[in-house]
């Protein structure tokens, strides 16, 4: 058997293990975000949304739907990798991989696959829930799929970096609470940045999540505050930078090797 066949077996083992991990505890991993998003649809979409009227020429519930799906993808891909990686460190079963002849890139790909799988699973479930509240039309399916995939990948990478540096369970919730959630809410889920004063419009442009939500919304509705190619470029640049950081951390053994 060639070296690359062995790496493939190792990769599929880690990926399967990661997917099984969140699938086994689906009541904790899949159901809660779906319920939360259903509440968003009920409160912001139906109850308040009817009073708000239209946003960018769209029904308010249709406007917020892509952002809510994207929020589920972001938080769940991140949460999956950070909790799995830190959990493996905490109970030391990360050593099972570290002593094995697996290149770090294979370990990384395995964890990322788990993060992407959970992000997309929850994203799909939220999409299913949204059908109870509105009709979904997809203008550009390729853009929807690629942005969902790339965003899940990006936040899985970010989750791994958090997992590498985390020294306690508190550390894995600090970034989601104090960074991810504010950036997501300010990333244009509930409003178009056109509504903001010019200064805050420009300020919003430094929020990377704005690009993901807008490009995802563009895929569904064909409207966006941001140029779609700029959004793709920003996401890809972030992925490349975070990927390099992840590989450097794993190669150095930061947080996992003494």
């Amino acid at each position: 058997m060639s070296r690359y066949q062995k790496y493939w077996i190792a990769y599929t083992t880690i990926a399967r293990k990661e997917i099984l991990r969140f699938s086994r505890i689906w009541v904790q991993t899949v159901i809660p975000p779906v319920i939360t998003m259903a509440l968003y649809f009920i409160i912001f979409g139906n109850l308040i949304g009817q009073r708000i009227g239209e946003m960018d020429g769209m029904k308010y519930i249709d406007f917020i739907m892509p952002g809510l799906i994207m929020m589920a993808i972001i938080t769940n891909s991140y949460a999956n990798v950070v909790s799995s990686f830190y959990g493996a460190k905490f109970s030391r079963h990360i050593e099972e991989m570290l002593v094995s002849p697996i290149p770090n890139i294979v370990i990384l790909m395995g964890f990322l696959t788990g993060g992407i799988a959970r992000g997309l699973t929850v994203g799909l479930a939220v999409t299913g829930v949204s059908l109870f509240f509105t009709e979904i039309s997809v203008e550009y399916p390729f853009i929807v799929l690629s942005i969902a995939l790339l965003t899940a990948l990006l936040f899985s990478l970010a989750g791994l970096i958090n997992g590498v540096y985390a020294k306690s369970f508190d550390d894995i919730s600090i970034i989601p609470t104090f960074v991810l959630t504010p950036l997501t809410y300010l990333g244009g889920i509930f409003y178009s940045i056109q509504l903001l004063p010019e200064f805050w419009q420009n300020f919003s442009l430094i929020n990377p999540i704005l690009y993901m939500i807008n490009s995802f919304r563009f895929g569904f509705l064909g409207i966006s505050d941001i140029n779609i190619w700029l959004a793709f470029s920003v996401i890809l640049v972030f992925i490349i930078v975070l990927f390099i950081i992840c590989m450097m951390l794993l190669n150095r053994g930061t947080g996992i090797r003494e």
């Binding site: 062995k6 190792a10 493996a88 079963h93 099972e96 991989m97 094995s100 002849p101």
Partner: peptide, 19 residues
């Protein structure tokens, strides 16, 4: 090892890591 994993899975996973 992961205390929540079944015994045979822990061993099978390790085999997988070694290809």
């Amino acid at each position: 090892f992961n205390i929540f994993e079944p015994v045979q899975e822990i061993i099978a996973n390790q085999g997988g890591y070694y290809g």
